[in-house]
Design a protein around this nucleic acid. Sequence first.
DNA 1: TTGAAAGCGCTAACAG
DNA 2: CTGTTAGCGCTTTCAA
Lengths: 335, 335
Amino acid sequence: MALTISDIAKLSEVSTATVSRVINSPEKVSESTRKKVMEVIKKHNYQPSGLAQSFRTKKSKTLALFIYDIDNPFYAKLIKELNKMAFDRDYTLIICDTENNKDRELEYINYINQNKIEGLIMTEGISTDHFNKLNNNMYLVCIDRDLDCELPYLRVTTNNRESVAKAIEYLVNLNHKKIAFVSGPKDVKTSIERKNGYLDIIKKYELPVDGDYIYQGDFKRESGSNALDYFLSLSELPSAIFCSNDLMAEGLLARALSLNIDIPNELSLIGFDGVSKALYKPLTTIKQDIHGIAKTSINGLISMIEGGVKGNTVKEISGEFLIGETCRRLKSGEE
Amino acid sequence: MALTISDIAKLSEVSTATVSRVINSPEKVSESTRKKVMEVIKKHNYQPSGLAQSFRTKKSKTLALFIYDIDNPFYAKLIKELNKMAFDRDYTLIICDTENNKDRELEYINYINQNKIEGLIMTEGISTDHFNKLNNNMYLVCIDRDLDCELPYLRVTTNNRESVAKAIEYLVNLNHKKIAFVSGPKDVKTSIERKNGYLDIIKKYELPVDGDYIYQGDFKRESGSNALDYFLSLSELPSAIFCSNDLMAEGLLARALSLNIDIPNELSLIGFDGVSKALYKPLTTIKQDIHGIAKTSINGLISMIEGGVKGNTVKEISGEFLIGETCRRLKSGEE
DNA sequence: TTGAAAGCGCTAACAG
DNA sequence: CTGTTAGCGCTTTCAA
C-alpha cells in the first residue's frame, strides 16, 4: 500500500500538518524542517493521494468539455490543445461527448454535479434546457457559442463575421461576382455570423446574388458534396463557393474531382477552419487560431475558478486568412 | 450547498448507513424503508458525492488512455468509442496525450499513481521504460501494441498480418505483380505484422519484388506523399501500392492527384484502417473494427478491475476488407 | 433489517 | 513555526 501523510509525518518526526504545509505552502515552514521532510518524501517517493485532497478541499481540479463531434478535425485539435493546457495547469479535462443527444447531456450534467467538476467548456451544438440544473457556482466558458442560461460565462470566439467578409472580399477582388455560400446549421451562432459576413460583402458590392446562391449545410462533409450537386442544378453555376467550414469544402472538392470539375479553373473554393490536409491542393481558407482559442479558454476558466469570480465577457480571437490554391482570378469580363 | 447523506438520513428518519445501503445494495433494506428513503432522495434530488465515494472506497472509477496522435482519425474514432463505453459503465476516461514524449509520459504516470486510476489502455508508440513505476496492481490493456513490462495485460489487436495478406492477394488476383509496400514506423508491432502479411504473399506467389518496393513510412500523411515520389524515382514504377494506413494512402493519393496520376487507372492503391472519407473515390482498404476493439478493451479492462484478476491474454479482432474504387484489374499480360 | 461508530487521507482552524 | 484536533461525506464492520 502506498504511504500516507501520517507515515511521512512519523518518519520525519513532525506532525501531519507540517507535512501538509511542506507540500502546499512550504514558505510557512522553517527551512530545516522542510528539508528534513522533503528528504523523507523523496526517499519514499511519497505522493499525496489526489483523491483525499480533492475530497478534503472539495476541489476536484477537474474541468469538463462538452463536444458533439470528435471526428471533426477542428474539434480533435481543440481537444488536444485544451487537454494539454489543462494538464499543464494541474487540471484534468473530461471529454463529454454529447453527440447532440439530450439524454446524454443530462447524464453528463448529473455526472458533473456529482463529481464536483469545477468548470465547463462548451462548444457548439448543445441544447440549452438542461443547463439550469447545473450547480450554480459552476464556471463556464463557451467556445463559439451562445448560451441561454442564467449563469454568466466567458465567450471565446473567432471573429467569424469579419473573417468571412475578408475572404469574400478577396473573391470580389479576383473579379468574382457569382459567389455562392454554403452555410452551417441554422441556429448555430457561428453559422449565423459567417453568413452575415458573406451578406455584408454581397451588399457592399451590390452583387447580383439571390437566395439560390445560399445552400444550407450542416458542417458535415457530406453536405458539401450535396451543395455542389445543388449548385450544378441551377441555371447559372456560381464561379466561386465559400463553405462555412473545411469539412464541407472537402466534401465539395471531392465531389468536384469525381465529376471532373477543375478547381480552381472552373470553380473557386474557400473553406473555414484551417484544418484540411487531405487535399491535393492547399485549400484557401480562414485558419482559426486553435491554440489561441484553447489558451484563452483554459486560462480564462481557471482564473475564474481560482479567483472565485464570474462574469459575462467576450474574447475574440482573430482568424487568419490563408491563401491556398483553390481560387482563380477571373479575367475582367469573364464570369 | 448540496445535501449530504446525513441530511437525507435525518429527513428519512433513518441512519446514514441505511441511506448508503439504499443506494448501494438496496436488497439489504426492507421494502418499506427503501421506499421511504428513495422518496426523500428523489424529492431533494440527492446525488451522493462522487468525490467522497471515491475517497472512501479508494476506487476512482477512472481509466486512462495513452495516446500519441489524437489527430489521426483512427484514434479520434477510437477515443470516441472508448469514452462512450467507459461512461456507459460508469467509469471516467482520461486522455493522456503523450505526444511520444518521455517526460510527458512520466508526468502522466505520476498522475495515474496519485489519482488512483484503476486501469490503463495503451496504444502504439509509447516508450516502455516508465511502466515499472506503475503501481503494480494496475490493470492494463494494450491496443495493437506489445509491452515490455512485468505486469500482465490484455492485448487487443486486429489480425493485421492476415488482413494485409488478404488485401495483397486481392491485388495478385487482379493480375498485379509489381506490388509495392509503404510500411509504418520500424519498431511498432502493427507495422511489423502488416509488413509480414505483405511478405507472406510475395513469397507465396514468388513475386519479383525486391527491397526497392518497400518504403518505410511513419503512419503520417506526409510520408505517403513522399513514398509516391520515391516510387516514381525507380526505374520501374509498381502497378499497385499498399499503404500501411489510410493516412499515408491519403497522402499518396493527394500527391498522385496533383501529379495527374490517375488512380486506379495508372496505379492501384490500398490502405489500412477504414477511416478515410475525404477522397474523391472510396479507398480500397482494410477496415478495422473500432467498435469491436473498443468494446473488447473496455469490457476486458473493467472485468479485470472488478474481478480482481489479471492475466496475459490476446484477443484478435477481425478486420474487414473493403473494396473501394482505387484498384484496377490488369489485363493478363499487362504489367 | 437497522444503527452506532470508526475511519479513509488530508487540510485548516486554532492554540501554543 | 509547529502541533492538536476536528471533520469533509461516505462505507463498512459490528452489534443489536
